[in-house]
Design a protein around this nucleic acid. Structure first.
Ligand code: MN
Ligand code: MN
Ligand code: ZN
Ligand code: ZN
Lengths: 126, 126
DNA sequence: TCCCTTATTAGTAATCGTTACGATTATTAT
DNA sequence: ATAATAATCGTAACGATTACTAATAAGGGA
């Protein structure tokens, strides 16, 4: 009896491995480029499909920063992110501090602003 | 002498008025629908173009929540937002508190999670 | 007021990140 | 090994947003 509706494929395994090692929060296209050497016939759609499956499995998380591409993160623990408005790179902020001044003291990046978004169920839907 | 490179149009004025009154954080499409009565020949492209201009002028702000559409907010003061995972509505959170427990005490929505994104210039770009 | 410059518009095509489809291939249970 | 059916690749489609173009209109100056 198969508890898991998913099968194991080299492609999906490699995508997960890349995300577990790579801390740069790569996009689907970044991952596709990295895998092209090992999988010359890889389809970009395969990368997207497997990223969605891995998110559904709770093994990775998707990050959106309002930019054109979505970014993916192999670290599913709760942590904040820092985005450079110049080079657009996405960095981890180890600090869980809430005061922006205190967060600034824990990193060499120059923090200019912070956006907080809360998610849940609204009173109308409850 | 005209200091402003922009001219005044009924369309842009109406878009701004809607955003100043409407606290529901409407999408471009929402605004388009509301204006169709008064401007039957309105083009959706006109809405998008003027929203970008108003953002550039600092009169409104664009909000992205990883969903399909961007949302727009006539309130440019710093404030947090709450998104219902069920109905996808976007609400204001008046509270500036950082502790999620304290924020929960100020609203009737059921808060499940919070995402913080910091923006600035990274140490490599400095 | 009229004229002129040009920002703005409506309509439509294009862009582009992502998803869906369909025939073939690969995984896995029996 | 066989059968059932995920997964793959290649390609088409999707959808929110942007770009293009000819016509329109705002608004400054004569
Ligand atoms: Mn991260
Ligand atoms: Mn708001
Ligand atoms: Zn940078
Ligand atoms: Zn709701």
């Amino acid at each position: 009896m198969n508890e898991n509706k998913y099968r194991n494929t080299k492609q999906r395994e490699q995508i997960l491995n890349i995300l577990l090692k790579d801390k740069s929060h790569p996009t689907a296209s970044d991952i596709y480029d990295k895998m092209k050497v090992q999988f010359p016939d890889l389809s970009l759609g395969t990368v997207y499909r497997n990223l969605n499956i891995l998110v559904e499995q709770g093994k990775i998380q998707k990050l959106d920063f309002g930019s054109t591409y979505d970014h993916y993160d192999g670290n599913c623990c709760y942590h904040s992110h820092f985005v450079c408005r110049q080079c657009k790179k996405v960095y981890d902020l180890g600090c869980i501090e809430d005061d922006i001044e205190k967060v600034q003291q824990t990193t060499n990046h120059k923090i200019e602003s912070c956006l907080k978004k809360y998610y849940g169920v609204c009173e109308n839907c409850l």
